[in-house]
Write a protein that binds this DNA or RNA. Structure first.
Length: 297
DNA sequence: CATAGTTCTTAGCCTTCCGA
DNA sequence: TCGGAAGGCTAAGAACTATG
C-alpha cells in the first residue's frame, strides 16, 4: 500500500466514477483500476462494489478512505513546507535562550523577523538549565542566544551586541553615592541573582571568585522586575546588564554602579550551525536582531 | 424491447526500474 | 547486460442505464 492508493480512493470518493477520478489524477481509468485491483489482491479484500453503474465503497474502502483523509492533508502540508525550505523561504527556527533576561529583549526583536519571514516556524525555548550545545548538534534547536561562546567547529557565532554589567543598589543604599563598586563591597551584601548555577553567573566567576570572596547572603530571583524591586527596597543588590536596568520600571528607584577598574563587558551571541548559515532567512534573522540593539548599549 | 451511451473489467503489450 | 516486477497504455467486452 502506498500514497497512490490513498490518492485513488480519495479521488474516487470525490468524483464518484473511476473515469473522473482517473482524469483528476492524470491517469487512464484502466491504470487506476489495475492499481487498486493489485492492492485488493494483495490484502484479500475488495474496496468497492458496483451499484448499477455507480461504485460504492465497501467497509474496507471506507477504512482506506478514512486513512487517506487523515494522511493526505498532512502530506500536502509537509510537501508545501519542504518546497518552502527548498526555495529558501521556509524552515524551522527554534531558539534556546540561555541568558534569561535576554528573552525580554528577544521577543520584540523577533517580531520584525517573523513579519518578514511568515513561513518560518519560530519557537523560543527559555530554560535556565538548558545545555544548548548538544541540543544544537542534535538538531533539537536551531539557534542559541547566549553570552558564552561554544567552542565547536560546526557552529557559527553571530555577534549581536556587547553590554556592560553594572551593580544595581537602592537609592538609600550606602553605596549609592559611589561611582563604582569592588568585589569587597559585594562581600558585605545580600546578592540577588537569576536562579542558575554559579558557574554561569559572571558576578561569581568574574568578580567574587577571583578575589576569593563570597557574598554575605545569596538569593535567587527568577524575574528582573522583582529583582530590581527588591533592590529598590534595600533587600539586596544585583549585578545585571546595564541595558536591562535602564529599561526597568524600577529605573528611577535604583542607582547603577560600574565595576571599579576595568569595566565588565559581555558580548551577546546568536549561535547557529554553520550549515544553516547560508540560508536566506538566516541572513534576515541576523539583520533583524542586529537592528534591535537595546538603546542603553 | 432494441439500441446507444456510460462505466468498469480484462487481456495483452510496452516501458522503466532495479537487482543479480 | 539481462530478466523479473511494476505500472502504464490501448482495445475489447461486460454490465448497466436511458431513451425512443
Amino acid at each position: 500500500m502506498d500514497i497512490a492508493h490513498l490518492r485513488i480512493i480519495h479521488a474516487l470518493h470525490q468524483y464518484q466514477t473511476l473515469g473522473a477520478a482517473a482524469e483528476a489524477l492524470c491517469l487512464t481509468q484502466s491504470a487506476l483500476s489495475h492499481r487498486m485491483k493489485s492492492l485488493e489482491h494483495e490484502v484479500g479484500i475488495a474496496f468497492w462494489g458496483k451499484q448499477g453503474q455507480r461504485l460504492s465503497l465497501t467497509p474496507a474502502g471506507q477504512e482506506l478512505l478514512r486513512l487517506a483523509q487523515r494522511v493526505l492533508p498532512e502530506i500536502e502540508v509537509t510537501r508545501s513546507r519542504l518546497q518552502l525550505m527548498a526555495d529558501g523561504r521556509g524552515g524551522r527556527l527554534h531558539i534556546a535562550v540561555e541568558c534569561l533576561p535576554c528573552a525580554q529583549w528577544l521577543n520584540p526583536a523577533l517580531g520584525a523577523f517573523m513579519r518578514e519571514w511568515p513561513d518560518i516556524d519560530v519557537d523560543v525555548v527559555s530554560q535556565y538549565r538548558f545545555s544548548a550545545l548538544p541540543a544544537l548538534l542534535d538538531y533539537q534547536i536551531d539557534a542559541s542566544l547566549t553570552p558564552d561562546r561554544m567552542p565547536h567547529g560546526d557552529l557559527h557565532h553571530e555577534p549581536l551586541f556587547s553590554y556592560p554589567l553594572c551593580l544595581a543598589v537602592g537609592k538609600q543604599h550606602r553605596l549609592a553615592a559611589r561611582p563604582s563598586f569592588t568585589a569587597l563591597d559585594l562581600a558585605q551584601e545580600t546578592l540577588l541573582t537569576y536562579p542558575v548555577e554559579r558557574s554561569r553567573l559572571d558576578v561569581f566567576t568574574q568578580i567574587l571568585q577571583p578575589a576569593g570572596l563570597e557574598p554575605r547572603h545569596h538569593k535567587a530571583v527568577g524575574d528582573t522586575e522583582l529583582m530590581l524591586g527588591m533592590v529598590a527596597s534595600g533587600r539586596g543588590v544585583a549585578v545585571i546588564p546595564e541595558w536591562l536596568a535602564e529599561r526597568s520600571a524600577c529605573r528611577g528607584e535604583v542607582t547603577l554602579l560600574k565595576l571599579a577598574g576595568e569595566a565588565l563587558v559581555k558580548q551577546l551571541w546568536l549561535v547557529v550551525r554553520k550549515e544553516d548559515r547560508a540560508l536566506a532567512w538566516m541572513e534576515g534573522l541576523f539583520a533583524a536582531l542586529g537592528k534591535h540593539v537595546p538603546s542603553a548599549v
